[in-house]
Design a protein around this nucleic acid. Structure first.
Lengths: 144, 144
DNA sequence: TATAAATAGGATAATATTATCCGAAATAAA
DNA sequence: TTTATTTCGGATAATATTATCCTATTTATA
């Protein structure tokens, strides 16, 4: 469904959010340990998230990654996915046709439409805040 | 969503179905032209579909690929996807956790559940017959 | 100002996926 | 039985994704 990069990106963002709520900046090393991902690769993904202004980085001593507390509630899962995987997941044709729309649909166009829209709705309506809260309260987990 | 291999596999199977309804066997060459896919790679995918008994191959002169007419209505999209991509698309964890279930859910487990189940339902309830019929009647298309 | 601690980013490597090529095996028909 | 046709399957190549490494740049503090 999502690329590895996107999976890491989502988990990393949640971990940064939790720590930002506690006013702590975190390093790629700490993040990678906490979400069980390769450190250097995770660092690359963090760079992309910074470029997309989803997270914030502070260089130098006492630096690290953080998210503005006030923004945590308004950041949606869709923004993270878009930043890393783009919008092909709910835009592109299910069977890879260059052109696929109501006028020229692929064989599964209508069948997929609902699923796609469900996914899109879910991503756009799931906030970083709720994901972070569920980790904090021990309802869900970032690694095995 | 699906791998390229799976996209080609679905389109190829639909094309074979249409021709089988007309009692014609088709070659990888013809299939690749009709679904706009690389021929040799498509041939590999056809082999996999044969191994999974979704399509049937006849070697030698006047041979080619076909599907038993009687089976076209009972073959579901899910079988094709399973044959090529396996069931990870609606089984694996959305964030790649090794273990992810009700007792130990990843952050998006519940959010994904609905989408996943919608996808699963759609794949299991879309028949090859209906996909083939829509191509035959010009309602949908296998290539641009 | 010097130093240590951090992220940024380019280069490279490993792996998975997609794609191609070619000879072997099977089969219908001459 | 020979020949032409066709799928099968192994080897290889190209490309994309995932992952690693190393140096440059930035910045807080001593």
């Amino acid at each position: 469904m999502f690329s590895k990069a996107c999976e890491y990106g989502i988990k990393a963002t949640i971990f940064i959010a939790i720590n930002s709520l506690d006013s702590r900046r975190v390093s790629p090393k700490e993040i990678a340990e906490e979400i069980n991902s390769p450190q250097a690769f995770t660092a690359k993904i963090l760079q992309a998230l910074v470029r997309h202004k989803i997270i914030n980085s502070v260089k130098g001593a006492y630096g690290g990654f953080e998210i503005d507390k006030k923004e945590i509630a308004s950041i949606k899962l869709s923004q993270i996915v878009n930043a890393i995987d783009g919008d092909k997941i709910y835009k592109g044709c299910g069977l890879g046709l260059e052109i696929c729309d109501e006028n020229h649909p692929c064989p599964v166009h209508d069948n997929f439409k609902e699923v796609r829209e469900g996914l899109k709705f879910m991503l756009e309506n799931t906030s970083l805040e709720e994901l972070a809260m569920n980790i904090q309260s021990g309802v869900s987990f970032l690694k095995v």
